[in-house]
Amino acid sequence: MGPEDNYIYDIHLKMRDNNVLLAYTGELDMKIIDALITSVKLKLKEVKYFPRVQKRVYGIMVECLEAIHSGYDITKKQNRKINPFSIFTLSCDKDYYYLISGRYIFNDNIEFQRAQIDKINALNIDGKKQLYREYVSDVTVKEYNTDLAMVDIAIKSNNTLTYEFRKVDDTTSFYIFQVKIKVN
């Protein structure tokens, strides 16, 4: 072991200081998503307070992970290849739970993603619920619907959805998405 291995300890310190309950990095498939969901379910059960918030965190986490998976699934269906690396963390402090996800995105998809989130953020809670009813009863969309997932996350978190696109090169960026959920 040498100084080059210090990064492990640094990661540990950062995770400890940020109360990270779960961190995952790598490719995400449905099996891994299930494993992460099961792990968080058990961790949240250990916390005896605020069961209402625990269920909320759980529900939002499922939607966030499925959204990452869906993003890559759509890319595959378009016969486009992108780096499948994803990152997901769940952490907390005395006021909030934080769910942060990251994945690669094609630059030509950024405006769609940005517009989708900005549209939801611009609405008050009644507007979000109205939009939810429209999406959930839209029979033209048969399967997974990111619009519906995003508005569901926004309603349950009752907070502004935050995001950032960090340019990687001329074709791709890294898309970071964060949800805050009030503890009490």
Binding site: S137, V139, E143, A149
Partner: peptide, 15 residues
């Protein structure tokens, strides 16, 4: 718990 995709099918069932 049900996810948002299930919600679409529950809507169909309730309809």
């Amino acid at each position: 718990y049900f996810n948002s995709t299930s919600a679409k099918f529950l809507t169909s069932i309730i309809n």
